[in-house]
Amino acid sequence: MSPDFLNTIEVILNGLMAGVMYSLVALGFVLIFKASGIFNYAQGVMALFAAMTLVGFQTGQVPFSHLINAVFGTSIHSFGWTLPAVVAVLLTVVVMILFAILVERLVLKHLVNQEPIILFMATIGLAYFMEGMGDLMWGSEMKILDVGVPQGGSLWLEEFTAGWATEGSTYYGMYIDRLDIVATVVAIVLVISLTLFSQYTRTGRALRAVADDHQAALSVGISLRKIWVIVWAIAGIVAMVAGIMWGAKSGVQFSLSLIALKALPVLILGGFTSIPGAIIGGLIIGVGEKLFEYGVGPLIGGATENWFAYVLALIFLVFRPQGLFGDKIIERV
């Protein structure tokens, strides 16, 4: 195999790994949108908040310590322990579930049957509230997130593939970040579990039922409010997974919440209501932007990854506004 070909393969693989992340974030959006028709602006901040909470638990930070110290003149900061990553993750899951319950009690419950735009505004409020809450609880400085996944390329893969190139050519093997590999495996497991859950359990069917028809769901005994809590909790957990992956790569700081922006083009490609759409849309954008940068980037000065996804989305909006999987929208006349 020629080194060029192998390099292209490597680019595609790296694209798929980046795409997995986009898919996850988009998945969070789709889950909430399907169940309640809400475009959740706070999805990105939820990822940030979850990552901050995880680091906070892991490093034994006292939540609200700045506030407590300011009010009581104390100077506590840390419980003085460090928790194993697994425990911290489980605690974060609990926090995200509590968060879902609070959102339902304090916000959604009062906004039933409102216009989508009002619900959207509510989630903007929610996003800023959570951002502030995160800072207040855990401090606003950038944090290092380390859940024990090694960074750096997989040496094994490099050595394994180094011999693949045609003899005589210079090829050093494929470089794929181990963190990306782990993240991809986790994401795949997550998506498969979610799929099984929604296909073969009472709660899963109820989630799908609510996504399809509220009245009919009520008529078979499904409580919409319970389902909303469950959906927000799942979206929170998905956000957490995305937050961990991104946070482990580039640190936990405000910019993490901007991954939500990358989910927008994915949603336009995949459609707002299609879970397979979110996954495949994410992968297409991940691969597309990496290949474009590899093939075309050098000719036009690089940094194409900043805009490629949005331009692709724009092209889709013009030629296929219903997304890859949506039904064709035919105007009623």
Binding site: R202, R205, D212, L218, S219, V220
Partner: peptide, 30 residues
């Protein structure tokens, strides 16, 4: 619904994306 009252609708209100089996399965919810 949990007290044993079930219904159908004048304008069909099925769960469109789900199979016949799954639709009827949701009827077992209570």
């Amino acid at each position: 619904a949990h007290q044993g009252i079930a219904r159908t609708f004048q304008n069909i209100a099925l769960f469109k994306g789900m199979s016949t089996l799954d639709n009827i399965m949701t009827g077992r919810f209570t």
